[in-house]
């Protein structure tokens, strides 16, 4: 089967994000960039399915030349080829979903796997827009129930199982209060949650091999997609600073603060 996966370039989740004093964006200086962790899980899941069922994994990223770093990372993990949608400038989720729709129509994959959200915008929308526009079924937040380390987990069936006839995929979804299982006709869109799998490393041989794997370049105009953003960020600011710790007089006040101020219970 042919699986299309995404590889968005995002700020390293370990790096400190600071807002520019004028509120027009974040301070880019000194930041490192990585493949969106949820997308990395999507790449891994694609590779596992292909290892089992045969076929190929095509990875797509949208951005300037710098996204080659993320495409190469996915290729080094084992993806077979890459599609680079060369676009610089602002892009919203409708633009992304519109571009991906065209890439899907061109590549004709049996399955599209995306991260459930990117850790910069945190919108959690693109997979769903894409599924609707393609007229496909969707299974968001594909996940597993337990800790990776537990014995139970090691013996567990994978969260994504392709039907014997290669026409369906059964997906375990992490939802409020439990796990929902759905079955989608293929082709379908799946988005990944954090606990679906643990992505493999890009090995050194993989990195060297990735050098010679193809990266196909596409441009939005060529795909006939209008990417004018419909969503604009007008201002960014830092969250309110953490309040200095306080002593509370009694249990009632503590519970009240935890509920209304810290919002943790």
């Amino acid at each position: 089967m042919k699986i299309l996966v995404t590889a968005k370039r995002v700020e390293d989740p370990e790096s400190k994000i600071k807002v520019k004093p004028d509120g027009t964006g974040i301070v880019q200086e000194g930041l490192k960039y990585k493949i969106n962790p949820f997308d990395e899980i999507a790449v891994e899941e694609g590779l596992r399915l292909v290892a089992k069922h045969g076929g190929e994994v095509v990875v797509v990223s949208i951005g300037g030349k710098e996204v080659h770093e993320q495409l190469r990372h996915a290729l080094a993990m084992g993806a077979h080829k890459a599609v680079w949608v060369n676009h610089t400038g602002p892009l919203d989720q409708m633009g992304v979903a519109g571009l991906l729709q065209k890439v899907v129509e061109k590549e004709k994959p049996d399955l599209v796997i995306l991260g459930k959200q990117s850790i910069d915008d945190d919108q959690n929308q693109v997979g769903q827009y894409l599924a609707e526009w393609l007229g496909w079924g969707q299974a968001t937040f594909a996940s597993k129930a337990e800790s990776f380390d537990s014995e139970n987990e090691k013996n567990k069936v994978p969260a994504l199982v392709v039907g014997a006839d290669n026409k369906t995929v059964r997906v375990v979804r992490e939802v409020d209060g439990g796990l929902a299982t759905v079955e989608c006709q293929l082709p379908a869109v799946v988005t990944t949650d954090l606990r679906l799998n643990q992505p493999r490393y890009a090995s050194l041989p993989g990195i060297m091999k990735a050098k010679s794997k193809p990266i196909e370049e596409l441009i939005p105009a060529g795909l006939g997609v209008d990417v004018t953003p419909k969503l604009t960020v007008t201002k960014m600011s830092a969250p309110p600073a953490r309040k200095a710790g306080i002593k509370v007089p009694d249990v009632a006040t503590l519970v009240e603060k935890l509920k209304t101020e810290a919002k943790v219970i």
């Binding site: 400190k16 994000i17 915008d121 953003p229 007008t234 201002k235 600011s237 830092a238």
Partner: peptide, 19 residues
């Protein structure tokens, strides 16, 4: 104007929707 978090709440953004 919609106020929403980005970067896991490290940034609070004000956004407008044009549709």
């Amino acid at each position: 104007t919609f106020t929403r978090p980005m970067w896991a709440g490290n940034v609070i953004a004000e956004v407008k929707l044009a549709t």
